[in-house]
């Protein structure tokens, strides 16, 4: 029987993959994709618990997360375009103006 626990573990795996991607990749575009992975992991969790608790609010929350993810992707990709135009690169470690 597949319960909420399965979903939690799956979501956890996706989350960890997303976090690792966030840290290891130099390409800004792939970093954004990793972020989308994390969002999906969160959504999976919400859906699973919504079903388990018999409460629709979880799904509503997932809708809002998808919306915010869309907004984030739009902004992030806009930033990528701007970065590319400015530095001729999409590598994050080339944008190190803040180095102390």
């Amino acid at each position: 029987m597949i319960g909420a626990m399965h979903y939690v573990i799956l979501s956890l795996i996706l989350f960890v993959l997303g976090v690792i991607g966030l840290m290891v990749r130099r390409n800004f575009i792939t970093v954004l994709m990793s972020l989308e992975l994390i969002f999906n992991a969160a959504n999976l969790n919400l859906i699973a618990f919504s079903d388990r608790l018999g409460n629709l609010s979880g799904q509503i929350m997932a809708i809002f997360i998808i919306t915010v993810a869309a907004a984030e992707a739009a902004i992030g990709l806009g930033l990528i375009i701007a970065l590319e135009r400015l530095k001729r690169t999409v590598n994050l470690d080339d944008a190190n103006e803040m180095r102390g």
Binding site: V16, V19, I20, M23, V24, R25, I29, V90, N91
Partner: peptide, 28 residues
């Protein structure tokens, strides 16, 4: 953004990739 030009195949991973993987796994 013409990925070919801006993303050299050789260095697609960060220099601290092993540390990052360990950190992520520990967090998970």
């Amino acid at each position: 953004v013409n990925v070919k030009r801006v993303s050299p195949e050789s260095a697609f991973l960060s220099r601290r990739a092993p540390l990052a993987v360990i950190g992520g796994v520990v967090l998970g």
